[in-house]
Amino acid sequence: MIIKYSVVVSPSLKANQRQVTTTMPESTKMKKPDVKIVILGDMNVGKTSLLHRYTERKFKDTISTVGGAFFLKQWGPYNISIWDTAGREQFHGLGSMYCRGAAAVILTYDVTNWQSLAELEDRFLSLTDTASTDCIFAIVGNKADLTDPHAQAATSGGGQADAELGGVQTQPLPACPTPPASPLLNKQVSKEDAMALYGRVLRYKGLEEKTSPPAEKMCFETSAKTGYNVDMLFETLFDMVLPSILKKRREGENSTVDLEESRGSKRTKAGCCA
């Protein structure tokens, strides 16, 4: 596939590139992200809401994600980049770019929607081919608040008092003292299903089950709405990618090799339709 867009580099282009690189003052270089995490999954499973809950401590009606959105999160002394994606990646072929060199991939589904789990395997797993070879996988069932009473109270992720929800609940409703918790929906995906998928992901990636993190640790049920398990998810992953950060820092000390720097810079993609 890629071959189709690659174009033989013309001498003038090389010259051009070299010039650009050499005139770029070192001081303007961005803080290089130490590590990359990608959130994948079908549209509407709540990827953006999860990230929003984690970074902004809020749940609000997010606006649909276009393409991919890149975030830098400061984690102690490290810069962690997180790509939030739209869920249409394999359609326009940018998925591999978002995933390139990723140290962790969050495969997200909606616990009330069996299809969203199936899509992970059918459509999204193959996008991770460009991820780092020691990439860590998390399987995340979001919207747990819709199916599990215990997920309706927040355990993390900015506490229970999220502004919007709190506002709704404190509205004076004399006739009805406490609004009843929304009726539970049918849970279509059990945690066991997710763990089974985790096993298949490892097999697909050719990873040993024994040396990989266990399924119990890597399968999460979350609610971006209440914050349930959200901090846990991100912080567990951040801790787990620390070794890759250190490794990368060591390797990257003086060399310019950078996983993020696309290989495309050597083989220039010329033109949107070339």
Binding site: T48, T65, G67, C272
Partner: peptide
């Protein structure tokens, strides 16, 4: 439409229909 989450940097394919 994409401004709700403004902290990030967006990278998205987009077609300009009148251009091509």
């Amino acid at each position: 439409a994409s401004s709700a989450f403004q902290a990030g940097e967006i990278w998205t394919p987009i077609c300009l229909p009148n251009f091509n």
